[in-house]
Design a protein around this nucleic acid. Structure first.
Lengths: 340, 340
DNA sequence: AATAGTATTGCAAACGTTTTCATAAATTCT
DNA sequence: AGAATTTATGAAAACGTTTGCAATACTATT
């Protein structure tokens, strides 16, 4: 059917088939207005017949962009990032870019390795999650002069362009909602905060907010759990099985909150009558849990889309200008929290 | 600190700095044994000083592999694929490859476009989800002679190498479990099966299994919902609010089952006393829901890992040999199903 | 009908590597 | 000590594109 000449169909094969020079073929793709309609038709027929597919790598060698953007995330596995990845991917796709994805499992050294790997592929830009990165990573980015941005966090003082939310505010909002409902004895379930500025900011801000109201959280009310429903469930179980139990649980994110909810249900506690549970994030599905999860909404999809749009135009722009976007947070009051 | 010469640090800049020829620098990377330790040291120092990062695109132009593998999924958003993507990504990373990810939103034409896009980047291989693809996609793959594989489905007769599970068996297992518990009036919630062979196989096999036992499922017991907790919840609500309601719900996957469970809880039905709910997939978290979800386990992580490992060795091998791996399914009996 | 434009095309150099082949230096052998 | 290897390096061609410049073929002008 399609007689592929011994393998390599390149621009000169097309040129030969169309009886024109390679330059003309190249121009047909890149500056169609410079080539006559007739030749263009001839060339397109040849392209069709030979099944030619352009070679971006070869284009790239002429200072052209590679057409790829790298995204390095802690993990793809959880609901947390899946949504941003999808939105970011769609947005850059829209602009003609392709996504190179890598994950590092919350290990900043592996993050460096991943960024480096992406740079070997000459990505046109690299997006990272959060603002905390190793020095090596920062140096690498600066040295290679690769456009870079941070997703998920917003910070006034950020060196990098960023699109995200203020995680401190998220923590504060969550704490204040519980305080407002009259809770004074609050348990905290957060992940390890090393190398995870998102979680750290939320936690410290929440604790500060509580302290402002004269409440200090003793250690036995603090529990650490990774972003895993089952491990969070376990952590909640422990927190709730003590001699006295808190009246509310503030969780580092919705995944943990979901685990906590199941833990509470397992203990036979009625939510929100016996225990209030507060998440952060408002992941897909959090609204549908029974009872539906009260949380602080971080608009993941918006962040991903905005990040993708801004970053691509930043990359393609002649005179790129710094951008820092802070997405609004919103307390979403649903079924897992109640007045004490 | 690092004095970067007007931008481009290439192999010849390194060569100049180390006072050797470009060839030697190249060799230091690709055949270190061919260059004397002394020169190697000189060169490495120069690399360090200049912050040189290799250019895979340029390497690729010499028949070298690009070091990238494309993965095209229907969606990144749901728990469904996040796990496979993560496992696949980790596995190919292990082998030195980088992931180019694209999603098509269950649209086979967009899938074609994505595959084409990946081929412009000269991926060393492209992995697709499922075995149902457009003719154009198949032609493209054959024509470009790009190694390709299918993930998630297993089929004896597949043209492509594949690693996955038998979705028909999954559907059958789910149906048989419900039958065994004595259920005769079973509701079905499945997604649109066009362009989604996974769902279609599960559904037809489930229906067949029921028919073998003399049970036919009337239309009002069938509902369609996409892979979304909230929409599945809605669908379940409708199915359960009719004049008579089924004693069990068989769901196309765990996401739908989760939605169905919330729907049932919202109706005030006790699961599994009043209603049994069966999922397919055993996604992360399904074990932790209260009550925990009875389902058919499809080992997503195993599939992703195996796929990544086999595909990379398939790609790098001199004499690649076809592989078709069928991962074992296992009914996981948990809390959402009970004897009638 | 000759001239000046203008539209279209081709030639050749360039991009950053790898690799074959050739050469020079160092080592081993007799 | 000279020949024969072996080891280490360099020169140059090649990979598949793009693009500046030059050449050609039209068209419109006088």
């Amino acid at each position: 059917m399609t007689p592929k000449q011994k393998g390599n169909v390149d621009i000169v094969a097309v040129a030969r088939a169309a009886k024109v020079s390679p330059s003309t073929v190249s121009r047909t793709f890149n500056h169609p207005d410079l080539v006559s309609p007739a030749t263009r038709k001839k060339i397109n027929r040849a392209v069709q017949k030979l099944g030619y597919v352009r070679n971006r790598a070869a284009q790239m060698m002429h200072g052209k962009r590679s057409g790829t953007i790298g995204l390095v995330v802690p993990t793809i596995n959880h609901a947390i990032f899946a949504e941003v990845i999808q939105a970011f991917s769609d947005a850059i796709d829209q602009a003609g870019f392709t996504l190179l994805l890598a994950s590092h499992g919350y290990d900043l050294d592996r993050e460096y390795a991943m960024v480096r790997k992406l740079m070997e592929h000459r990505v046109d830009g690299v997006a990272l999650i959060g603002l905390e990165h190793s020095d090596a990573t920062a140096r690498l980015i600066a040295q290679q002069e690769t456009p870079a941005m941070a997703i998920w966090n917003y910070a006034e003082e950020s060196e990098l362009p960023c699109v995200g939310a203020d995680n401190r505010q998220a923590g504060r909002m969550a704490a204040e909602h519980l305080l407002q409902l009259g809770h004074r004895d609050i348990g905290l379930i957060f992940p390890d905060t090393r190398g995870n500025d998102r979680a750290r900011h939320r936690l410290t801000a929440a604790v500060e907010a509580l302290e402002t109201h004269g409440i200090s959280v003793p250690d036995e009310r603090k529990s650490e759990a990774p972003y895993s429903v089952s491990q969070a469930k376990q952590a909640a179980l422990e927190l709730l099985s003590g001699p006295s139990r808190p009246t509310a649980l503030l969780c580092g994110n919705d995944v943990i909150a979901q685990g906590a909810l199941y833990g509470a249900q397992k203990c036979g506690l009625k939510v929100p009558q016996d225990l209030s549970i507060m998440g952060i994030g408002d992941f897909k599905g959090s609204a549908d849990i029974e009872p539906s999860l009260t949380t602080v909404r971080i608009p993941a999809e918006t962040i991903g889309t905005l990040a993708g749009e801004r970053f691509t135009s930043y990359i393609t722009s002649e005179a790129p200008e710094m951008f820092k976007l802070c997405c609004e947070l919103e307390p979403i009051l649903r079924g897992t929290t109640g007045r004490i």
